[in-house]
Computed example of a mutant assay.
Amino acid sequence: MARGEDALARLTALVQADLEATNRAIVERMHSPVALIPQLAAHLVAAGGKRLRPLLTLAAARLCGYPAGGPRHVALAACVEFIHTATLLHDDVVDESALRRGQASANALFGNKASVLVGDFLFARAFQLMVEDGSLEVLRILSAASATIAEGEVLQLVTQNDLSTTEAQYLEVIEGKTAALFAAATRVGAVVADRPPREAEALDAYGRNLGIAFQLVDDALDYAAAQEALGKTVGDDFREGKITLPILVAFDRGGEPDRAFWRRTMEERAQEQADLAHAQALIARHDGIGETIRRAERYGAAALAALETFPRSEFRQALADVVEFCVSRAR
């Protein structure tokens, strides 16, 4: 395994029993007498996924002293995974994605209507789990994150195909659509352990900065990775006209012929077969991938700094190692 994958494996091993309980809760809560719901949900479970967000909830709670086997962090880890999976289902419909985690996406197999409606079901299940936890603070954190995710996705839709999008707007998109759930997933760990606000804020900062770093790397990989490594069709962002940092860097540093290419392909959506390769070449020429990874490393460093609030422990080290996992995917 690569060093980053080793880090994720160590975190998984550290909370293995709780993760297994979380997986059981996920399967149990996916049950429905409406056969299509568990059928489509089973497709998602079979597609794999690293369960990164629920892992963060479990590890953050243990970092704060919540006992292994305690029911609250397990249920909330399942809740976090339901929110994440629901957004994936909806995103794949919006983006018309054919692949998810290297396999046919749910919308490609079951259709858009089923994907949207099962996504709604998973959101509803997530809110049931929040209510069952009984903490208004948990409900506030996770419901606010759910709203912020939707806002981030809508903002991405608004900025799509618009090369006047600023880097600040781009960061606002990824803070909403990705980092908000990372922050909520870690923050609730402090809440269930009844820790002071200072620790909840530190875990929020850790998760938020980690989430931004994670998405920056994802956006870089869309122009740099092989399809097998990425788990989705390479160049999806380009074909959909998504304005991400590699493009913003290449557009800003390029001359007028380069900018004319970007306007044609991203704003006018007049794309030809060779355009993706040319886009990758322009991004490479202007170090768009390198610049994006360097930004990700800075956010990763901020995530590590937030962990300094906590005493050294195997859980703090495991959460620190996850930063390496997120950033190393593009190396």
Score class of each variant (00 low, 15 high):
residue 2 A to E: 13
residue 21 A to H: 03
residue 27 V to M: 03
residue 31 H to D: 14
residue 37 I to C: 01
residue 46 A to N: 14
residue 52 L to E: 02
residue 53 R to W: 09
residue 58 L to A: 04
residue 64 C to Q: 02
residue 66 Y to E: 12
residue 71 P to C: 06
residue 76 L to H: 07
residue 85 T to K: 01
residue 98 A to D: 15
residue 103 Q to V: 15
residue 107 N to F: 11
residue 107 N to G: 08
residue 108 A to N: 07
residue 117 L to H: 09
residue 129 L to S: 05
residue 130 M to Y: 09
residue 137 E to K: 00
residue 147 A to C: 15
residue 149 I to H: 03
residue 149 I to C: 02
residue 156 Q to I: 00
residue 157 L to I: 13
residue 160 Q to E: 13
residue 177 K to I: 07
residue 180 A to G: 10
residue 181 L to Q: 06
residue 188 V to L: 03
residue 188 V to D: 02
residue 200 A to D: 00
residue 201 E to W: 11
residue 201 E to L: 12
residue 206 Y to M: 06
residue 217 V to N: 05
residue 221 L to Y: 01
residue 222 D to C: 04
residue 226 A to H: 13
residue 226 A to I: 10
residue 230 L to W: 05
residue 235 G to E: 07
residue 238 F to V: 06
residue 242 K to I: 00
residue 243 I to Q: 00
residue 246 P to L: 07
residue 249 V to M: 08
residue 263 R to A: 08
residue 265 T to E: 02
residue 266 M to I: 13
residue 267 E to C: 11
residue 278 H to V: 11
residue 280 Q to M: 09
residue 287 D to G: 02
residue 287 D to E: 14
residue 293 I to V: 15
residue 293 I to S: 09
residue 295 R to E: 14
residue 295 R to I: 10
residue 296 A to M: 07
residue 298 R to Y: 10
residue 301 A to S: 12
residue 307 L to D: 04
residue 312 R to F: 00
residue 314 E to L: 10
residue 319 L to V: 05
residue 320 A to L: 01
residue 320 A to T: 10
residue 329 R to E: 08
residue 331 R to L: 12
